[in-house]
């Protein structure tokens, strides 16, 4: 909102584009686990299969009578699938907190009157009895081992800006971040960053000047970091980076010390669910001690039950409440994206 403001016409144009995109609910990945012929719990999620599979298997150990149909899609696709196409899924798991809140606020979530009580969640980890957070994840800067001199690692956004400005040729085309226009999580991180000060816009300008590459997902950024196509990735969901470095790739994970966003992974049972009881069962499993314990197996994920345990002191948890709706406002969103595009495409 600093430089260019969108025209009403442009807003409407964007809306048309969005509704065209709505036709394309794309399944990115899919896995089916559990008993053949049993009742099927269908889960729509943004979490990729590698991260989710241990959790699913732990659940199926408790409920061997069930089968799970686990479908991975982007946050925007998931919102369209539920809110517009009214597809029948029993549980929606997403890292895009704003879209989850919007689903619940607009009446697409089934209320779970007992779940919050049963699980005894902290107040910040759920919104009403509709949206339940089960894990916290930091949003971090990830650098490949060769990106910076040892001992000169950037510790804040300002450090990163300075490092990029000092050696533009080294980083040109080798910086990556989310494309907020394509990724729901990316848009959420960008708007939250912007809400915490001007550092974000300055960083966006610098990244734009250095021809930053835009990604749909954290996983792709990690892959490109591993192959050294990227030197630095900004706003990467912590678990992906940590999983990858646990696998042996040589990545440096930097939680920015000025502030580190904490994302709450949330789940809700959609009103369109064919078997809402199964959705609720998995939700309860996620919040149960057993489910929370198996979440601990994923590096970078902190179960909400022992939150504040091993989080950096600069952590800022994104508030799970209708305040998130403000950034989803279409006028605001298109204004934000116009400004983002302007920052990215330097003359």
């Amino acid at each position: 909102m600093r430089r260019l403001f969108p025209a009403l016409a442009l807003t409407l144009f964007c809306l048309c584009l969005q509704s065209l995109a709505a036709r394309a609910f794309e399944i990115e990945d899919r896995i089916r686990l559990g008993a053949e012929g049993g009742a099927v719990l269908s889960i729509l999620s943004t979490t990729d299969i590698t991260a989710a599979e241990p959790l699913l298997r732990a659940f199926l150990e408790q409920r061997p009578d069930l089968a799970v149909d686990y479908i991975v899609a982007s946050a925007n696709s998931i919102h369209q699938a539920i809110a517009e196409e009214r597809l029948a899924y029993d549980l929606v798991i997403s890292s895009a907190m704003d879209l989850q809140i919007k689903l619940a606020n607009d009446g697409f979530a089934l209320s779970q009157p007992d779940a919050a009580e049963v699980a005894g969640l902290p107040h910040w980890a759920h919104w009403r009895d509709l949206v339940f957070g089960f894990a916290l994840e930091p949003v971090v800067i990830v650098a490949s081992a060769s990106a910076f001199d040892p001992g000169h690692l950037p510790r804040t956004r300002r450090d990163l800006i300075d490092a990029l400005r000092e050696d533009p040729e080294r980083f040109r085309g080798r910086i990556g971040t989310y494309d907020p226009a394509a990724s729901g999580a990316g848009y959420l991180f960008a708007t939250q960053d912007a809400g915490f000060g001007n550092a974000f816009w300055r960083l966006a300008e610098v990244m734009g000047r250095l021809d930053a590459r835009l990604y749909c997902c954290s996983g792709d950024m990690i892959d490109d970091l591993a192959t050294e196509r990227l030197l630095v990735a900004y706003n990467v969901v912590g678990s992906y980076a940590l999983v990858s470095s646990a696998k042996g790739s040589d990545l440096i994970i930097i939680p920015p010390e000025d502030f580190t966003l904490l994302l709450i992974r949330t789940a809700l049972v959609p009103k369109t669910a064919a078997r809402p009881d199964l959705g609720t069962a998995f939700l309860e499993f996620l919040l149960s001690p057993a489910g929370q314990a198996s979440l601990k197996g994923t590096p970078g994920m902190t179960p909400v039950r022992d939150a504040t345990a091993d989080l950096p002191s600069s952590a800022r948890t994104i508030r799970l409440d209708p305040g998130l709706l403000a950034n989803l406002d279409r006028v605001r969103k298109s204004a934000f994206l116009v400004e983002w595009t302007a920052a990215m495409t330097q003359p």
Binding site: M1, F5, P6, A7, L8, A9, L10, T11, A104, N105, G107, W127, R128, G195, R319, D321, P322, G323, L324, L325, A326, N327, D329, V331, R332, A335
Partner: peptide, 22 residues
């Protein structure tokens, strides 16, 4: 060239604060 809306998230957060209202 049109209309802009400055909408601070606290506007909505504030309404939801008391009872988690929609």
């Amino acid at each position: 060239d049109g209309l802009d809306l400055d909408l601070p998230p606290t506007t909505f957060s504030m309404l939801s604060a008391m009872g988690e209202d929609r």
